[in-house]
Every structure is written in C-alpha cells, then in structure tokens.
C-alpha cells in the first residue's frame, strides 16, 4: 500500500472525567473511503474535530500528507487540503446557496484583503462554486437563501462547501444525519460519485451506507478503537457484534 495520507497516532481527548478519544491510532490510505462507526457518544465527532483542528488534542500526533498538523489552527489545516462537514448542519443561513460555496472557493484563492471589487459575479469564484453545486445536484437552487433549503438540501450544501476547498481528504460527520429515505439515497449517490476520486473519512450511523461505500471500517466504542479492517472482517468480528452491531438487533 502507498504512504497513508492521514496517520493518527495515540490521539487522546478528555472532557473532564470523560475520555472521549482514548489512544486512537489508525491510517487512511490515499483515495480510500474509510468509515468510522460506533454507538452514540463513542467519540466520532470529537475525533473529527480533533482532526480538523476545532478541538485541541490532549495527546497524540496527527500526520497529514506526511507532515504533523496537530498544532495548526483549523484554517491552516483547511488550506493544506483537509475539509470537514458537520453533523449539525453548519452553513451560512443568510447567504444564498451560491454565496455559501463561493465563499469556500474564495478561502482558497489567495488572501481576502481585497476591499473594492464586488465578490458577486466574480467568475473566478462562482464558476468553481457552480461546478461543486453540480456535483451535489444543487445548482438549480443557486439563488435560494440557505435558510430556505430543505434539510436534505442543506446537507448537500455542506458537502458542496467541503468540496469547494478542493480537499485531499474529506472528513464527513454523518452526512445522512436526520434524512429521510429518499434524501439518504441521494446523498449515498453523491458519495458514490466521489468515491475513488476523493479520500474520505466517513462517520455514519446508516449501516447500509457504510457497507455500500467503505473500503475499510474502524469501530469506535467509548473512544477506543475496538476493530479496524475490511467491511467483511468487521461484519464478522466477534467484539464488534457484541459491542455494536448486535445492539441494533440486526
């Protein structure tokens, strides 16, 4: 296997007495789709936030493209090619769909100390933004305020904004959260299109989606990795069945 794009070694995060991330180590290979699953409160979002820089780790090292990034602030990690989406939809509600994505493009087109020319209508920003909206089939809603989108559309917008930063690694925190059947299917199709083109670290509860998309799966329980491997291994892993899959009454 080629050099991993993301290496996580001994990552720890404590919230008071709670060990939300307990000595987590695993790798993500280039262009793989790596799913992280685990019951509620297992520490999946915490892990994503540590990787994106929103949370500081108490111990451990994160290497991205071979370089340690543990001490970089979120925006610098983004500029190096790390993008995240949020479990709880986090977009710019009062801006239009296009503005949301154009802003993400803008972040990666040099500095924004440009005070005079209007950003609206700037093809350098809007052309790539539209491209990303097309990838998630949201381009027809470009001039709608984000606040007026349906829940499913907001989730699609989340993905488009992450894509607009032209990331080398996508950290997706439950992209299907709160979605109905139809919306989920649309999201799965979007992710299937991305699979193989983008490296993805996918946190997801929807097991159908996980087994349909993942090349490898890491299972977190109480902040600890209890198993990591190919989907078939995970499906048949005794510890996983007991701790997690069994719980679902599958």
């Amino acid at each position: 296997m080629s050099e991993p794009i993301l290496q996580i070694e001994g990552l720890v995060k404590r919230f008071g007495g709670v060990l939300a991330t307990d000595n987590v180590s695993f790798d993500v290979a280039p262009l793989e789709t790596h799913a992280v699953i685990g019951p509620n409160g297992a520490g999946k979002t915490t892990l994503i936030s540590q990787l994106s820089g929103a949370l500081r780790s108490d111990a451990g090292v994160i290497r991205f493209k071979g370089e340690p990034i543990s001490n970089l602030p979120p925006h610098q990690r983004s500029l190096r090619g790390l993008a995240r989406s949020f479990q709880i939809t986090s977009v710019f509600m009062e801006m239009t769909v296009l503005q949301n994505v154009a802003l993400a493009v803008q972040a990666h087109r040099g500095h924004s100390y440009r005070f005079w020319r209007p950003a609206a209508g700037d093809a350098e920003l809007e052309a790539p933004a539209l491209e990303c909206l097309r990838e998630v089939s949201l381009h027809e809603r470009r001039d709608v305020r984000a606040a007026s989108l349906s829940h499913g559309e907001k989730r699609q917008l989340e993905i488009a904004m992450a894509l607009a930063t032209e990331p080398d690694l996508l950290l997706l925190d439950e992209p299907m959260a709160g979605m109905g059947r139809e919306e989920s299917e649309r999201m799965i199709n979007t992710l299937k299109d991305l699979k193989g083109e983008k490296t993805m670290l996918l946190v997801e509860h929807d097991m159908d989606a996980v087994f349909a998309l993942a090349d490898r799966i890491t299972v977190l329980v109480y902040g600890r990795v209890i198993a990591s491997g190919a989907p078939d291994e995970i499906r048949n892993d005794e510890a996983v069945r007991r701790a997690y899959l069994g719980d679902e009454g599958a």
Binding site: S52, L79, M93, R114, A119, D122, M161
Partner: peptide, 28 residues
C-alpha cells in the same frame, strides 16, 4: 464597496458562522 468585496464576504461569513469560516480556511 467594502461589504460587497471579498473582504466583506469574509467579514459577513465570520458573523454568520465563525466555526464554519475557519473550517473552510479563513483566518477569521
């Protein structure tokens, strides 16, 4: 001019949702 420029969009974005701004690469 300012609020409609790239700079203005960065400022307004930081008002609306700072965490997201940082996540997409802005030094808010």
């Amino acid at each position: 001019r300012l609020v409609n420029s790239r700079f203005g969009m960065a400022i307004r974005g930081a008002k609306g949702n700072e965490e997201r701004m940082r996540a997409i690469g802005f030094n808010t």
